[in-house]
Nucleic acid binder design. Structure first.
Lengths: 164, 164
DNA sequence: TATTGTTATACTCTATAACTATA
DNA sequence: TATAGTTATAGAGTATAACAATA
């Protein structure tokens, strides 16, 4: 790691127990520069907050969106498969689906070949709604472009392609 | 957004309620490709898990590491300033510091100039420990390099520099 | 009046374990 | 025995509100 050495400018040093005159954005954060995890985490928080805000009117959060999108593109999947693919605990997916089913966006159909499992489908309403969510998600994606630049967003997606 | 159209290959389609023969890694996830947030979130989970595992022996998690690092590089900061700088709720920082103080890594010293606030310092033990944590964090950072490539890690840090 | 640290509460998310009905 | 879905619980993390001491 390339944690740079501490570089406290004189006016930023505090003596023993002396409160420093200092604002949050003036802190030497050199020590965290060079840590990929820190930068990625801060960016992820920003991006989720923008997503939640942009899709605020339709009350859809990132995980709900990913579940709807996967079901929409692959109708008939079981809960196990969706959970595994999205990296969600199957116990948690139960609640996510309960809520989406209550909102009439998704339906669970009993499988005939394996009566333990459910085949997941969007409702008609769900398909219409998803189209709208995707338009809003596209708007969110444009916010990302505005924030880091179109080329950088493309590069980012390339670098992280293996994690989807 | 560039959500590609649904492309269900015949063998992946399930009829009404018919359980499909399909593994999680075979699902058409085209619909989520092109969403920066999804890729960033999956990467962030991977990177945190590797960090937690790599620093597992010393029982230090990413947030604890960032707090120790900022205090180490800027001794004397108040809790408000640290919380604001790291984007942590000040209520949560209280508990984080309680735990770090119990482990004798950090000490809260009453400020003389503003008796409401505490000046935060590492203990001697804390300084020694942090040096070790930073060596382990460097090891973690090498894992990131191995995962996405040295050049890509550098590019990522450049793209996200504004979020630190 | 406003701010710092603290306590408390609620909600989301993660991680497990155990139960049921099927296989 | 093992698996799919479910239920329940505990621990992080986040978001708020309110309080005491101090400014």
């Amino acid at each position: 790691m390339t944690v740079s050495a501490t570089r406290p400018s004189p006016n930023k040093r505090a003596g023993n127990g002396t409160a420093p005159r200092i604002d949050a954005d003036e802190i030497g954060l050199d020590a965290l520069v060079g840590h990929a995890g820190y930068a990625v985490r801060r960016f992820q928080i920003w991006i989720f907050q923008d997503f939640i805000k942009t899709l605020g009117d339709v009350d859809i959060r990132p995980t709900q969106y990913s579940v709807l999108t996967v079901i929409g593109a692959n109708p008939g999947l079981s809960q196990m498969v969706v959970a595994k693919r999205l990296g969600i605990e199957r116990a948690r997916l139960v609640h996510l689906l309960d809520s989406l089913e209550q909102r009439k966006l998704v339906k669970r159909i009993k499988s005939k070949s394996d009566r333990r499992s459910h085949a997941l489908h969007l409702t008609g309403q769900g398909e219409t709604a998803l189209a709208k969510f995707q338009r809003l998600a596209a708007e969110h994606e444009r916010h990302v472009e505005e924030k880091i630049g179109k080329a950088n967003r493309e590069r980012l997606l390339q670098i992280l392609a293996g994690f989807t």
